[in-house]
Every structure is written in C-alpha cells, then in structure tokens.
Nucleic acid binder design. Structure first.
Length: 422
RNA sequence: GUGGGUGUAGCUCAGCUUGGUUAGAGCACCAGAUUGUGGCUCUGGGGGUCAUGGGUUCGAGUCCCAUCACUCACCCCA
C-alpha cells in the first residue's frame, strides 16, 4: 500500500534543520526589537478580494498562482501569497493609525503560491519582512534596507548585491509609460511574445526582459529615472544620500521593476549568486497607494520581504551553522529493574535543575546505553546499578575525560553544577 | 503550463552500454570480541515488490512504451 506523501512543493522541517530555523527566527526577532519593529500576525487566509485589489488582478501572483477556494458558505478565500496586503488590511481594520502616526511592523509567516517548485521556490514557503506605515520620508526607505542587510550580516551571509531604482508615482509614471511605448512601438514585432503581450498592460516589464534580443532593443530606451517628477527625484536622491551615509553599497538598476502593482518610488532587491536561478533573497519598496486601493485613508508606506528558505540555502552554501549542535548534559544508564524504576525521578531532579537529560527506554545493555550516550554527545553519564543503590552513590562518568567518580545521591546536583562550570 | 535530468537498502551511490547464478559497496543501525562502561579496530547480522504498470524475450534492475514521483530550468518571484 502506497504511503501518503506530502504535497508537492512543501517541506517537512526535520530535527537538525528545525534548529536552524529557530536560531534564524530568534536572530530576526532580536534585530527587529532593536529597530523597534513590532510583530503583527495575521490569519493564513483572507478574502480573495484583498489580494486581487491589493496586488493587482493582472499580476502573475493573482492571475495564476493563488490557492483560492470556496468555503461552505460559498465565500471566496485565498491562502495568503504575500504579507503586505494583509498587514495593510489589519492596520486599516484595527485603526492602528489612530494610536500613532507611524507604525512599524514585522512578521515571520508561511505563504502559499501554486508555482512549479524548483531550487529556492516552494508552494508553501516562508518570509520574514517589515513594513513602516504612515511616513513618506526617505529615511524610512533607508532604514528598511539597513534593517534587511543588518539581519543578513548578523546571520553571516556574504556576497549579497543590493540594487535600487525608483519607479516614480502617478504623476510621472503615466507620461513615462507613453514615452516608453512610443519608443518600443516601431520595433514591437522584433520583441519576444511575452514582451508583445506586456506592451499594453505593463510596458515597464519589457525593460526587465532577460532575453538578449529584447535587452538589446532596450539599450537606448528612455529610462524612468531620467523622467521622474521633482518630488520623486528628490525622494530618490535623498535615499541615496542616506545609503551613502550608512556606508551601504548599492547598484542603481534603471530597469529594476517589481512584479506587484502597488509599488511607487523606491524599489529594491537583494540577490545572491549562491542561489541559482531564483537569486533574489529580498525584495521591497515603497507603496504609497496601497491603502487607498484597499479603501482606506491615504497612508504612505515602505517595506520588504525576505525568503527564509533562500536565506538558509545561502547559509548552507557558505557552510554556516546558525545553531550549534545540541549536546546532552546527562545520560542516565541503569542496570537492573530497581534502578530503572528510579530513573524517571532522577531525570526529573536533573531537569528541574536545568540539565538536558535523557535515559534509555529500551532496557538495553550497559554497552548499548553507553553508545547511545556517546551518540548524543553527553557530557556526563550517570551509572546506577545494585552497587550504587546499596551505597546511595552514583558512578558519574565525565565523558570528555574518560574519567569516573563516585557521587553521593544527595550531592548530585551541586557536583554536576561545579563540573559544568569548569 | 512547457522543456531537460533522475528514480536500485534509512542515506550516498555502483551494476544498465554488451539482458543470463542467491542484486552489491560505503555510511547508518543491531550484536559479539570486552558476562557493569562510549569513541578506534576487528567479526558477524538485519534491512531491497530494483518507482509503478505494460511490452519484447527461453530469461529483464539492464531493452522498449506509458504513468507517477522527485529535481533543475523557462515564466515569475522571496
């Protein structure tokens, strides 16, 4: 009979790996804390409408990648494919703007997209990220980039590349779109099929095309950065000044566009060559129009999202260990029925004193129990048999020194504590 | 959705080209050498519907077809 398998594109995070996750999450939380970002948790599913309106009906995410279904009440729901729209929804719904003009949130959450899995791309994957709501100042954009890079630095990641760009706002993007379409139109038939399809809806994407023929045609295309309105230009200029002041190196990429409709002005991406085809570990930018799109009051905002699986891929590629291997403090070896019956209460005493402790559950030979203790890298082994019970004294083996001493039952904890502190 | 690659022990893989004894290795696991003591060594042991189904053949892990799974890539994204 065939055993049930996990769903395509999902992963079991097994012991050995799960410690890495916990260590990374701890590092993220600690960094978020000193940057004064507060955790905001939202449900795993939302009304489909939230994403359709927030991310954009025409984006790939919404048009072909969402896990959408109808519940028993015939409501259309979607497993969240990204976190920015839910954060904005929660912010508006709970009227958090009323408590403070600027709100800084972070999250660590599972997300769902029905794509074909490959290296660094899963159907259930995890992101952490941050969002600053309520300020249009470029300082917030710079803080966001600094925050993401700081987390990577603390995790030990190397050779990351930051690219930035400005995609303008409503006043400059529409005129530029026309300019760009005028440039492309004469040669449109030479572009690839994808680009021809993008021409009307999303001509900016054409600039991002990686096909050689298309990027060659794009060489002399007008660049949005050269046609920004004054406000956008100033915003972009200030951002760069802040990055310089923070000694953050970056590349300006006039063709960097993001796949989600809600971005305005600042966009950025952090990539790693260690990742293969899916090389982005972090993407983000400013989305000053999203709040209104969702029916709320105008709220300028900026944020980023970072893939946890991809971060861990880079860490593995670099041979980084975010969490040190766990060693057992004490392993109790028992000989005979009487000792085995007492082992649980000894364990309890050890554990209450804070020692990571274990014993044998299979009634194995002393040799086998010793092997088990060694396998789990126990620092100390407590031996208890008839002899020890009679004398009310444990035999305590200090494994690293292959040395064995006698310890009266009553002195066990204090002896271990002094040995552990050596 | 489209293409390439790969499916043999818990893991990593050999065997397939040129079909032919009981399908192998290393690691891991268990036991013994050491009847109450780990790591190293030596000896032994358990564990496989060779992904699944069909076909060719006297005979298929090996050749052919299909299906499924995994994986990499396109697209897009974290």
């Amino acid at each position: 009979m065939a055993t049930i398998r996990r769903i395509k594109g999902t992963q079991d995070i097994l012991p050995g790996e799960s410690e890495q996750w916990v260590a990374l999450e701890t590092l993220i939380r600690e960094t978020m804390r000193v940057y004064n970002f507060k955790e905001l948790r939202t449900p795993v599913f939302e009304k489909t409408e939230l994403f359709a309106r927030g991310i954009g009906q025409l984006t790939d995410i919404v048009s072909k990648e969402m896990y959408t279904f109808f519940d028993r009440g015939n409501k259309q729901l979607t497993l969240k494919p990204e976190m920015t729209a839910p954060i904005m929804r929660a912010y508006l719904e709970n009227k958090l703007y009323a408590k403070s003009p600027v709100n800084k949130f972070f999250y660590i959450a599972p997300l769902f997209r029905q794509e074909n899995p490959q290296a660094g791309r899963l159907r259930q994957f995890h992101q952490f990220g941050a969002e600053t709501l309520g300020t249009a100042y470029p300082e917030a954009d710079a803080e966001m980039i600094d925050l993401a890079l700081n987390i990577y630095r603390r995790a030990g990641l190397e050779n990351l590349n930051l690219r930035i760009n400005s995609v303008g706002d409503v006043t400059c993007r529409l005129p530029y779109k026309k300019l760009l379409q005028d440039y492309i139109r004469p040669n449109l038939h030479l572009y690839c099929q994808d680009c021809q399809r993008r021409f009307d809806d999303n001509p900016l994407r054409i600039l991002d095309c990686k096909k050689e023929t298309c990027s060659a045609l794009n060489q002399k295309a007008p660049r949005l950065v050269d046609h920004l309105c004054e406000e956008c230009h100033t915003h972009y200029h200030r951002l760069k000044q802040h990055l310089d002041a923070l000694q953050i190196s970056y590349d300006e990429d006039p063709y960097l566009v993001r796949g989600l409709d809600y971005y305005t002005r600042t966009v950025f991406e952090i990539t790693s060559e260690a990742l293969g085809a899916q090389n982005a570990i972090c993407g983000g930018g400013r989305y000053d129009l999203l709040a209104e799109e969702l029916g709320g009051q105008p709220t300028p905002a900026v944020g980023f999202a970072s893939g946890i699986e991809r971060l861990l891929l880079i860490a593995r590629h670099q041979n980084l260990h975010l969490a040190p291997a766990q060693r057992l403090d004490v392993f109790i070896i028992t000989m005979g029925e009487t000792a085995r019956q007492k082992s649980l209460s000894w364990l309890k005493t050890l554990r209450q004193a804070g020692f990571l402790s274990e014993t044998d559950f299979l009634g194995r030979s002393v040799k086998a129990q010793m092997r088990e203790a060694n396998r789990q890298q126990a620092r100390f082994v407590l031996l208890a048999g008839e002899e020890e019970l009679e004398r009310k004294t444990f035999s305590l083996k200090i494994m690293d020194r292959s040395q064995q001493i006698s310890v009266p039952f009553a002195n066990l904890i204090e002896t271990l504590e002094s040995l552990a502190n050596e």
